[in-house]
Nucleic acid binder design. Structure first.
Lengths: 413, 413
DNA sequence: GATGATTTGTTGTTCCGACAAACATATCAC
DNA sequence: GTGATATGTTTGTCGGAACAACAAATCATC
């Protein structure tokens, strides 16, 4: 129940009783002291990563480990170029100053986000720092093969620049669709027109780097959890409204919820009305068929607008039809959120994209709808807040997937 | 990523970056080797607990630990009377026979389930074995104070019988309502008429034992996960239909999902229709106002019936009105499940109580409804199965809560 | 600005637990 | 019976974290 090596962590026994395969068992051979070491290195590195830099004394407190142990751990991480020690924080406090432990510049992860009109590739260092960002427009919607090829080209160029000063630990892909996280198969990405495309495998072959893939909104959730509005919150729901629909992710018990295959969090396809419009997904009356950006843009007489522009236009408008549409959409959103809150009891709801815009346009409406939901009086309301991370959200989230390997086992470095 | 001390387990870093209080940090003092030991003891004990007994050689394989280490661990557990070694399994296999490691009889947890007309208390040993079960009927619906008093009386009687042969490690309470798991406050138990009753604290004071409390359906989920239909499945949804409504629980990533306060899994209050009947919970059109046992009993001309009798009656009936009502209820159930599946991507749905009955009466109907849901073609269907644990479900689940302390730290024993 | 209190970094030692190797034992197959 | 195989048992080794004692750097106070 309490921490193991430092209160910062808890052992959680794997719950399944699935027999361990010989291959799996073989992986666990070796000295257990090594494991303890790896774990403690991981704990320290994650703390530095998440905070972007902390005094070493703070690491000692937060991990509960001995001063000398933390010194040794940080020393090893410095040697592996995963962290650097910096000048002590200038603060008014008695006692010997403690050197800052900062994320190192060397380790980076590559983030990839294929879209219908472009492929974006980013280079992200520890601490969620986006170092580079390349957006390559495509003439047509790329096939998975084309996307892998284009991405591999960009990655090759970036590596030529980056290495050997930096070390690329892997690639994380944020896919607008259903992704089987186990092997990175894109089961269905409707807007890209991809179905059953082993995109992670393609990209791994083309680049020689380890590749992991997941749903874009799930990775957005991860990013918000580590660096954004969800920092320090162990249970929240993230919902993002984009041009291609509504994506979502669930953080539960401090863990991103993937579900059995990685398809969890598809709150955009929550059915919000029994006799609604048919959705491409096979259902009808999905949240994302009822709550869309287009009707709002049309009513506002806008051609195109990003979330900020849309929000400004909504706030400036006093058109009754606009207000009615905003209310209609917020009602649907509130319905979906109400049921999700009921199932998940989150502490927080984070809204991104145009969902943030319509919520900001009528700040109290959504709260009221949610408050009218089941059990809300007894349970209490989660706060509803906008995203904190802007354009870099997906880059950070996807890179997190790539950097996870070093964060979990810093001796890889 | 892989296991630490034995592949059976994974370290999971605590995700929140909340600063560790000095008190918390103090708890983690001490030799880290102790921690490793405690964890490995815990792993072995849990394996024995879950399986009800395994050869020691199997423990070696499953944990990935060294033979000699496992021998030492089992030895310590035997010394602490948490497990016993038995005769080797008679099997046709070369090699020296390995002694069976069986759950010890000494450690027990006490399970409590307050209901509107009775309080049930059970004594459960490791391996989910229900040793005793006392049901004390009450003339009126008990208040929290009364329930605590009655329970304390029963517990005192049981302890007089049990001790010192057995050792009671704590009390787990399954409450039909919203329970704040952190401190066992019963936030709202509508049928009992309890509101903001610190039931766990009351019972702890009255018995002197550590008490934990949680929602009954959540504990049912835990029981099904450890010993029932959900064994070995890391992502499933459990839904139970009882006389007082519909309760649910979610197992996600191998962990019971409690949410921010412990109110997660309230799928009985999923809103399934926009203009439905008002529910006591404050919402309207909740699943449990639309899907109820009473209309079925009425149509069948039954006065009262348990799940099995209801199921038999449903299967025997050829009344059109009955069928229509079953379909109506399954449609609502399918709607709620469809949205939950969409959010959580479970591998399995476990139905208990009369929900299992109506599903069994029309086996394909629910599957069809769920299959028509959003993204179901791409995602694939979870299987829908009935519960495996019968009357002992809540006893086992609640006791699990009590035994969790020893399972987590066997050196307490 | 010296002095003491306080906090933290540094160094050498100790202790504990898991592993490894060698041996012992019990079963199966022939 | 004999060999192969798997597992229990015993003893020694090794690694990592804790601990203690000391050193260093800051603040507070006079």
């Amino acid at each position: 129940m309490s921490g193991n090596l430092g209160s910062y962590d808890v052992w959680k026994p794997r719950p399944s009783e699935s027999p361990v395969t010989p291959a799996e068992a073989a992986k666990t051979l070796g000295n257990s002291n090594d494991r303890v070491r790896v774990h403690n290195l991981s704990v320290v590195l994650r703390l530095v990563h998440r905070t972007g830099g902390v005094p070493r004394s703070s690491l000692t407190r937060q991990t509960g480990l001995n001063r000398s142990t933390v010194a040794a751990l940080v020393g090893e991480l410095v040697e592996r170029q995963l962290v650097v020690e910096g000048e002590p924080d200038a603060r008014n406090q008695v006692g010997r100053p403690s050197p800052m432990t900062l994320p190192g510049d060397r380790p980076v992860g590559i983030a990839v986000n294929p879209e219908i009109d472009a492929i974006t590739v980013g280079v992200v260092g520890l601490g969620g720092r986006v170092l580079r960002r390349v957006r390559r427009a495509t003439a047509v919607i790329p096939t998975a093969e084309q996307a892998a090829e284009i991405t591999a080209d960009i990655v090759a160029e970036l590596r030529a620049e980056l290495e050997p000063a930096h070390r690329v630990f892997g690639i994380g892909v944020a896919v607008p669709g259903l992704v089987r996280v186990a092997d990175g198969l894109v089961r269905l990405a409707p807007h890209l027109g991809w179905e059953n495309q082993p995109f992670a495998a393609m990209l791994a072959r083309a680049t020689g780097l380890p590749v992991r893939a997941a749903n874009d909104a799930n990775l957005g959730t991860l990013a918000e959890s580590t660096f954004g509005a969800g920092r320090g919150v162990s249970d929240f729901i993230y919902l993002n409204g984009g041009a291609s629909g509504i994506g979502g992710g669930i953080l539960a018990g401090g863990e991103l919820l993937f579900g059995a295959d990685g398809y969890a969090g598809e709150l955009g396809h929550t059915i919000v009305t029994r006799n609604g419009i048919r959705c491409h997904c096979g259902g009808a009356g999905c949240l994302e068929t009822e709550v869309r950006r287009e009707p709002l843009l049309e009513l506002l007489g806008l051609d195109d607008a990003d979330a900020d522009e849309l929000e400004a236009a909504l706030l400036a408008s006093d058109d009754r039809a606009v207000l009615a549409e905003v209310h209609r959409q917020l009602d649907h959103l509130g319905f979906a959120l109400g049921n999700a809150i009921n199932a998940l009891n989150p502490r927080l709801i984070v809204l991104g994209g145009f969902l943030g815009s319509i919520s900001a346009a009528e700040p109290d409406h959504l709260d009221r709808v949610v408050a009218a939901g089941p059990l809300s009086a007894a349970r209490g309301q989660p706060s509803i807040v906008p995203t904190e991370l802007g354009a870099s959200l997906l880059m950070i989230g996807a890179a997190e997937l790539a950097l996870e390997a070093v964060l979990e086992d810093p001796t890889l470095g």
